[in-house]
Design a protein around this nucleic acid. Structure first.
Lengths: 233, 233
DNA sequence: TCACATTTGTCCGTATGTATC
DNA sequence: AGATACATACGGACAAATGTG
């Protein structure tokens, strides 16, 4: 006679350093540890968890790479809770891109689709502050362009501001990823003044349509704007 | 008189384990190390890089969490090159959602928009294999439902299969993230047989419209299908 | 400017756990 | 069932960085 042995789960599947990192992560998730809080030193953590310092260090590496903590050396240094998950996602996406899992064409196709959805939502939810931020962005870009300088960073920011205006965190996160890929692509080609100027004009028209809540027009303008990129790469 | 001190870069910004992981990563990027290749043991790596074993281990942790390698214990184990970057991105995005405490409503709104875009692309790019996979998924779900069992996992898989059918890695990544969050949400509510049955019927209709390339109909069906979720949570 | 304390970074030696043959 | 070849883990030591007095 035997019982179904699947009811017996292994006592220990995870490695010790994974248990440690998961424990700390859980404390961050439930709010016990908050941004700015300082963790005990590695030696103290090792004693508290009753593990070796090496194990603590590997756990900290995981938390660091996952964007939960930053580690500083020296006097007054140590481990501080600080959220940089989005940056870490960006890093990984850059890796994925480097592995050539993502082609330029499929990227642009996906970007058009996703940013259209974001803009659609931004038209419904943008408030005065959002409009001002977008407007300021364009003004700054125009200032630079008047000085014959490119305003690439501001162009990227415009799209992030659109995501913020959608008031949807999911869109903010997804746009962050899209933006990261785009910056990666863009970094391979030299800055192009003429292109920068066109982009600023496009953004101005899109914002104008957004303010007037001309939905169809705004979305079509955005699509054309992004499609233009195909020629750049 | 002083010079622009930005021209003097620090001799050593990176920590040793970061140099090691970057070196190995570069070898993967340039194809020297390929999927399936086995790295030397930690001890040998330490000797080759002329560093300590702990340093190697921390470098391996980074590569592991970044989705470049997998590490197996025991005889015949060791470090093997294997790409799972997309999975790791999904993991991090799940963390990001957890931290930002995204609301059900904004999640569903974003999901509708993004999955509509995915479906739109899937209609253009799905091949026979994709159709078969989707069809098999529905058959299996119907089998379970005929036995009065819920088929939640298969329902999730259906949406992933749609993303695959779009033949766009960006969509696959984004859908993976959306799916992860959805599972997270779903795990908070008990399985509902009636709902599972409805979902299977919806999927069947959507696939039917996809095969017939009835774009408008398919997209509308999908939207209604996802919106139904609002009632569940 | 110079010691000094603190904390991470790194290395070594050793022991244990674990999966395969 | 036992030998084997790995990763995993512990403890101790010193190096390096960094802010303070």
């Amino acid at each position: 006679m035997s019982v179904d042995n699947t009811i017996f789960k292994p006592v220990k599947t995870q490695r010790t350093f994974e248990e440690v990192s998961s424990t700390i992560k859980a404390l961050i998730f439930d709010g016990t540890l908050q941004s700015g809080d300082k963790l005990p030193t590695e030696t103290v953590l090792a004693k508290q968890f009753n593990v070796g310092r090496q194990t603590v260090r590997e756990a900290l590496r995981i938390l660091e790479l996952s964007g939960f903590i930053i580690v500083k050396k020296g006097f007054g240094g140590g481990t501080i809770i600080k959220d940089s998950i989005l940056n870490k996602i960006t890093d990984l996406i850059r890796d994925a891109f480097q592995m050539e899992k993502i082609s330029v064409d499929e990227f642009i196709l996906a970007r058009v689709a996703i940013e259209k959805a974001i803009l659609n939502s931004a038209i419904d939810n943008a408030d005065d502050q959002d409009i001002k931020a977008l407007s300021d962005n364009i003004d700054k870009a125009n200032d630079l362009i008047a000085k014959k300088k490119v305003a690439i960073d501001l162009h990227f920011e415009f799209h992030s501001l659109l995501a913020n205006a959608s008031k949807n965190s999911v869109f903010v996160i997804v746009e962050g990823a899209i933006n990261a890929i785009h910056r990666n692509l863009r970094s391979r080609t030299p800055p192009d003044f003429k292109f920068s100027k066109t982009a600023a004009q496009d953004h101005e028209k899109i914002l104008d349509a957004l303010i007037k809540k001309e939905r169809e027009k705004a979305i079509n303008l955005l699509e054309e704007h992004i499609i233009k990129l195909k020629g750049v790469y």
